[in-house]
């Protein structure tokens, strides 16, 4: 066998390991009630409650778009954040503090393959949750998904997922113990959700807060997704400035993630 063949056989083996890791992560995730409730049942509950309460409302500030057309993509953005950010952060924090990482390092499994498995599993969870929320939006609330803006919807969703997953890995450094993880992450995500056009439109009353929101990743994600749903949107649904903001956050997230991974695999 040539070195090249051995290399590609090794790569194929590692890809299989990643695929298996995704399966195990998925199994563990859906089995852990606390995590699956936070990631899926909460957004679903928000969607049903806010949706039913505002069933017949229309938003003047958005040119008379129905509230539910605004809120379905909003809650999807919120879910991408909670699952991507919170789950990645908690998974990595657990890996470190429980000594799983130490055990893993003694095995032939490359830490990178493991982390890629965890990340892909999170992406899969985000897509499943999004599909479920959209299904409820369509079936229960009669929201329509537009074929013409579908490319924009998908690309924005991927960009948001990339930004939050990488930032989640980075923020795991702020979590000293898994117990303190939930409050710390809630403290970041919940206020952000309230001023990022997710639950209700801000309507221009507090300008500086909106400026901050636009610079952070949640508002651009919500905005990008929402515009794909609005009937007045023309073109394929790409919102350039939102995608740019998400791309910048992904770059920052990747940089912090690489730093975090280096620390995780360092020896002293």
């Amino acid at each position: 066998m040539s070195a090249e063949q051995a290399g590609s056989a090794g790569l194929a083996r590692d890809l299989r390991l990643v695929a298996w890791q995704v399966r195990y992560e998925q199994r563990a995730f859906w089995r852990n009630r606390r995590r699956s409730i936070f990631s899926l049942a909460f957004p679903l509950m928000f969607l049903l409650i806010f949706g039913l309460l505002n069933r017949h409302s229309h938003l003047k500030s958005l040119g008379g778009v129905s509230y539910i057309t605004f809120f379905v993509p909003g809650i999807v953005a919120y879910t991408v954040m909670v699952v991507g950010f919170t789950n990645m952060a908690m998974s990595i924090a657990l890996l470190r503090s429980e000594g799983i990482l130490k055990r893993l390092k003694a095995t032939p499994m490359p830490a990178s393959a493991y982390l890629i498995g965890v990340t892909l599993s999170t992406v899969l969870t985000i897509f499943l949750a999004t599909a479920l929320l959209l299904l409820v939006g369509v079936v229960v609330f009669g929201v329509s998904i537009r074929a013409s803006t579908l490319p924009g919807l998908i690309v924005t969703l991927i960009a948001g997922t990339a930004a939050f997953a990488t930032l989640g890995i980075a923020v795991s450094r702020l979590i000293p113990k898994p117990d303190s993880g939930s409050p710390i992450l809630m403290f970041i995500t919940l206020p952000l959700a309230f001023f990022s056009n997710v639950f209700f439109p801000l309507g221009g009353s507090v300008k500086w807060l909106e400026t901050i929101a636009k610079a952070l990743p949640l508002q651009p994600l919500a905005d990008g997704l929402q515009s794909a749903f609005y009937p007045h949107t023309t073109g394929a649904g790409f919102v350039g400035k939102d995608l740019l903001t998400l791309a910048i956050w992904t770059v920052i997230g990747c940089w912090l993630m690489v730093k975090t991974m280096r620390t995780l695999s360092a020896k002293d």
Partner: peptide
């Protein structure tokens, strides 16, 4: 190792199988 965690949501059989795949 002296004190070393495992993925607590997986079962004994799943963990032995999962770690086995690494080798």
């Amino acid at each position: 190792l002296q004190s070393c965690g495992v993925q607590e949501d997986l079962t004994v059989a799943e963990l032995v199988e999962m770690y086995g795949r690494y080798y």
